[in-house]
Design a protein around this nucleic acid. Structure first.
Lengths: 197, 197
DNA sequence: TAAGTGATGACACCAGGTCTCATCACCGGC
DNA sequence: GCCGGTGATGAGACCTGGTGTCATCACTTA
């Protein structure tokens, strides 16, 4: 892995994930990651804004996929249908061959509050993008925000279940089930009477 | 403000807020904050785990208030009623005299993605605490998570509206209205038919 | 062969954050 | 009134994340 080999970014991502799994996120130095990739600290920060970002290279595109799916859904589609369409649009990214990788990534994020923070920021951006897309379809503010939150919740729980080691079900099915459950829960919560006590 | 004056923590919080407002979060150094408070960098980090945390001293107690309120609600109370009780339990913290301070804090957080990340982490912990409390009351997992998310959403939008400069309404009213709107939106979302297209 | 371009390395630098040790005020016992 | 203990602080070394600058190298095109 010499200095001028291609795929510097990928090499850095792989080296980072490996080292994080070996020694933990905090105990791993950016210089060490760069070393293992045959590069230097300077180059690392040319490819990633900060140390956390090396774990979130892909999912940045998710927000676009989500909002595009919502925007291009047929006008007659109800809001829940938009959410389903959004989930379907990203399902292609979760193929069985990426399953193990996703699992490692998930357990790592769970161990570091620094990584957890970054994940929450990404999910919040995802939610904002969805809410914007829903408002663009004419949904009122409150509905758009709630629906976006439900969409994010459906996505993250579906992803967690899909990435679990023992899981063999395809992402799309898990996601639909999660969304369906949430919709039912929303009905129950909405129908909930005001406290009478 | 000599070395042995009391209230070091408060002095640091005040100095930090003032400097952040003057120069912005990024342009302010921890050493400068400590200087203005008549203390040193060492002491700052003895009171706050990191630079962000100086902005989140109070709200850490919110999670406890929320889950306590949910746990101690009468058993007959419906889930929406639990959320309302939780919001009521923290309303005492948002008195008119803290209004301006909260506004400054809010605009600051909006300007720094570092602070936004931390806020999201706090809100996520709040949501987890609420979900735990709801599960302890017998709610199933999906319902608990959704309801907690709705509770967090109600709280954060209510807080944003309450902290707006032109607002004069008490927090509790705004919070109830936000929760009511969200409940209505949940009904609509739940009733949403499956996509037929 | 020579100039230009883009990615990289080397290095200096700053700020956040940790750690250790000395110092000072205060408190209680004698 | 002196003395030792305790707790908060100051001082400063140190590491790492992150930024900026400049030189270097490979590859391309004329």
């Amino acid at each position: 892995m010499g200095r001028w080999e291609p795929n510097a970014r990928e090499r850095l991502e792989r080296a980072a994930l490996a080292l994080f799994v070996e020694r933990g996120y905090d105990a791993t130095t950016v210089a060490e990651i760069a070393d293992r990739a045959g590069l230097t600290k300077s180059t690392f920060f040319r490819h990633f804004a900060d140390k956390r970002e090396v774990m979130f290279g892909g999912p940045d595109a998710l927000a676009e996929l989500f909002s595009d799916a919502i925007r291009t859904a047929p006008p007659s589609t109800a809001i829940a249908g938009c959410l389903a369409a959004a989930l379907e649009s990203v399902a292609a990214a979760f193929t069985p061959d990426r399953h193990d990788l996703a699992g490692q990534r998930r357990t790592l994020i769970a161990t570091s509050s620094e990584l957890r923070e970054r994940e929450l920021l990404k999910l919040a951006r995802l939610g904002s993008a969805m809410a914007d897309a829903l408002r663009a379809r004419g949904a009122d503010d409150t509905t758009a925000r709630l629906a976006a939150e439900v969409g994010v919740l459906a996505f993250s729980t579906a992803f967690a279940r899909w990435a679990a080691p023992e899981n063999r079900q395809p992402f799309i099915e898990i996601a639909h089930a999660a969304l369906r459950d949430l919709q039912a829960a929303a009905t129950a919560l909405g129908a909930d009477a005001e406290p009478r006590s």
